[in-house]
C-alpha cells in the first residue's frame, strides 16, 4: 500500500511539475493545471491494470490508440509514417501541424509498420518486448539491455510533454538528453528536419553510444570507441563514420539541396542546422522509427537479420552515394 501511495505521489508531483511544459501538438501531452482532470484519460490511481498506473498493460497499444493508422486521435500516424491529411488549417488552433506539413507527408521519424507506402524492412520495436540495443555501453556489433527495461514509446518520448524536441524524454536510458530544435512556432512541421544542432545525435547515443564517434579522421583512426574510451577501448578493431560534423565533401556543398540524381529521382538527406552551419547527425542517414528501404546484394549482408535495412533512409547504400558520389 505504501508503495502504491508512493508511486501515486510521484505521478501527482510529476504532473504538477510538468504543468505548462511544451506539448508536441496540443492534445493531452501537456498544459496541465493544478486541478487538471486529464490524468484519468490514461491512468487509474487504485485500479490500474498496467505499469505506471495505466489502464492497460501495453504503452504502445495506448499510444497507437491515437497515433496509429486510424488517426482517431492524432494526425501523426506513426504506424504508417505519415502526417495525416491537413487540408488547410486556416485559423485552426488545435491542429498545429497543419499549416506547415503537406498532406500525407512522410514523417521525419519514419514508421513502425509502413513507410512511404511499403512495409518497413527495419524498425525500432516499441512494443515492450525488445530490450537490447546495439552498442549500448558495449562494443559496436554487440548488444546490451536498456537500463530502464524494455523499449516502449515512453523510452524516448514523454507523454506528459517536455521542454525537449518532439516531447523527447530528458532522460533516456539513464542518460540526460536535451535535444535542441529550430523554433517552429505554433504550427509545427513534421516533414522537415528541425534539429538546431548535434544534440539529436546525443539522443541516439543514449542507447547506441558506441556509434557516436565525433573525432575528426575516425574513418582511419580507430582510437575512439564512442564510449569515452579514447585509449584503445573495446572497439580497437573497428572504425566508424564520424558524426556531428559540418558537411563538406567534393563539389556537393549540401546534400539537402543537391543529392544524387538517378534517372528522374533526386535523393537528398537532411542535416541539422541547415545552411553553412549544417551538421551530419545520426538521423541524417537513419530513421528513428522505421524505414521501408530495401536491401539487396552485398547491402543485404549485415550482422543483423537478413535483408535488415538498419533504419537507413535510402535503398541499399544510397545514403553513402548522396554525399560521396563514387
Amino acid at each position: 500500500m505504501k508503495k502504491v501511495f508512493f508511486v501515486a505521489s510521484i505521478v501527482l508531483i510529476a504532473a504538477l511539475l510538468t504543468a505548462g511544459l511544451a506539448s508536441a501538438n496540443g492534445g493531452p501531452h501537456g498544459g496541465y493545471t493544478a486541478t487538471t482532470d486529464a490524468c484519468a484519460g490514461c491512468h487509474r490511481a487504485h485500479t490500474a491494470t498496467g505499469p505506471n498506473l495505466l489502464t492497460a498493460s501495453s504503452t504502445y497499444d495506448l499510444c497507437i490508440s491515437c497515433h496509429g493508422s486510424t488517426g482517431s486521435g492524432a494526425n501523426t500516424n506513426v504506424d504508417d509514417g505519415y502526417y495525416l491529411s491537413t487540408r488547410d488549417d486556416s485559423g485552426g488552433d488545435w491542429n498545429h501541424g497543419a499549416a506547415n506539413t503537406p498532406d500525407n507527408a512522410p514523417l521525419l521519424g519514419g514508421g513502425f509498420v509502413n513507410y512511404k507506402g511499403a512495409a518497413v524492412t527495419s524498425s525500432h520495436v516499441p512494443s515492450g518486448t525488445v530490450a537490447a540495443a546495439w552498442g549500448n555501453g558495449v562494443a559496436r556489433g554487440a548488444t546490451a539491455n536498456l537500463a530502464d527495461g524494455n523499449l516502449t514509446c515512453a523510452s524516448c518520448h514523454d507523454p506528459h510533454g517536455s521542454n525537449n524536441y518532439r516531447i523527447i524524454n530528458e532522460t533516456v536510458n539513464g542518460t540526460a538528453v536535451s535535444v535542441t530544435q529550430v523554433d517552429e512556432g505554433a504550427a509545427k512541421d513534421y516533414n522537415t528536419e528541425q534539429w538546431a544542432d548535434s544534440s539529436i545525435s546525443q539522443f541516439c547515443a543514449a542507447c547506441h553510444g558506441a556509434y557516436h564517434v565525433t573525432r575528426a579522421g575516425s574513418g582511419t583512426d580507430n582510437s575512439d570507441d564512442g564510449l569515452g574510451n579514447t585509449d584503445y577501448g573495446g572497439d580497437i578493431s573497428t572504425f566508424a563514420h564520424r558524426v556531428d560534423m559540418s558537411y563538406s565533401y567534393g563539389g556537393n556543398s549540401n546534400p539537402e539541396t543537391v543529392g544524387v540524381i538517378s534517372g528522374t529521382t533526386t535523393y537528398t538527406l537532411p542535416l541539422a542546422a541547415s545552411g553553412t552551419n549544417n551538421l551530419v547527425v545520426c538521423t541524417t542517414c537513419h530513421l528513428p522509427h522505421g524505414t521501408s528501404a530495401t536491401m539487396s546484394g552485398v547491402a543485404a549482408s549485415n550482422p543483423g537479420p537478413a535483408g535488415d535495412s538498419a533504419l537507413l533512409r535510402l535503398d541499399n547504400r544510397g545514403v553513402c552515394e548522396v554525399c560521396h558520389q563514387k
Binding site: S69, T70, S72, D80, V113, N114, A119
Partner: peptide, 9 residues
Amino acid sequence: TTPAQRSPV
C-alpha cells in the same frame, strides 16, 4: 490499393 495505402476505420 496496397495495405500500406489504406486505413479503413
